[in-house]
């Protein structure tokens, strides 16, 4: 399971829905680039960002790539510290069962600690 990296660390807070803007996709690009450069990455889904993880998405209906299919490859890039804000799920009436990705469900307090322990934070 995921754990907080305490060494040199990049955290990404992804807060936007997957297709309404390109920001969700940019979060993924940053994460993959950081991982390729051997940085420890924390990937945090908050706010509308939790919509990125819903199961049963198929963006071919809107001529896009289905973002969650790419998010499923994070472990192959060595990104295993994936966190989901529990309050954001609750506000949207979602539970871990609705999600296609295995990740740690965490409180705002835990997210604050992860951010504080990061060398840099990308918030988008």
């Amino acid at each position: 399971m995921s754990e907080i990296n305490s060494s040199k660390t990049v955290s990404i807070i992804s807060r936007q829905a997957p297709y309404g803007s390109n920001r969700a996709h940019q979060s993924l690009d940053i994460a993959l680039a950081a991982a390729v450069f051997e940085q420890a990455v924390n990937y945090i889904f908050m706010g509308d960002g939790v919509y990125q993880l819903l199961g049963n998405q198929n963006a071919t209906s809107i001529q896009s790539k289905t973002l969650v299919n790419a998010l499923e490859t994070l472990d192959l890039y060595g990104i295993e510290s994936i966190f989901i804000d529990s309050q954001s799920l609750r506000e949207r009436n979602l539970t871990p069962k609705d999600l296609a990705l295995n990740a740690s469900i965490v409180s705002r307090g835990e997210i604050a600690k992860i951010v504080r322990a990061s060398d840099s934070v990308f918030n988008l």
Binding site: A35, N69, A70, E72, D75, L76, Y77
Partner: peptide, 18 residues
Amino acid sequence: QRHQLSPANRALVNLVKR
């Protein structure tokens, strides 16, 4: 086909390992 992504080197190694 599954992920709509070509794996970069590190991911390729991990994919093949798995």
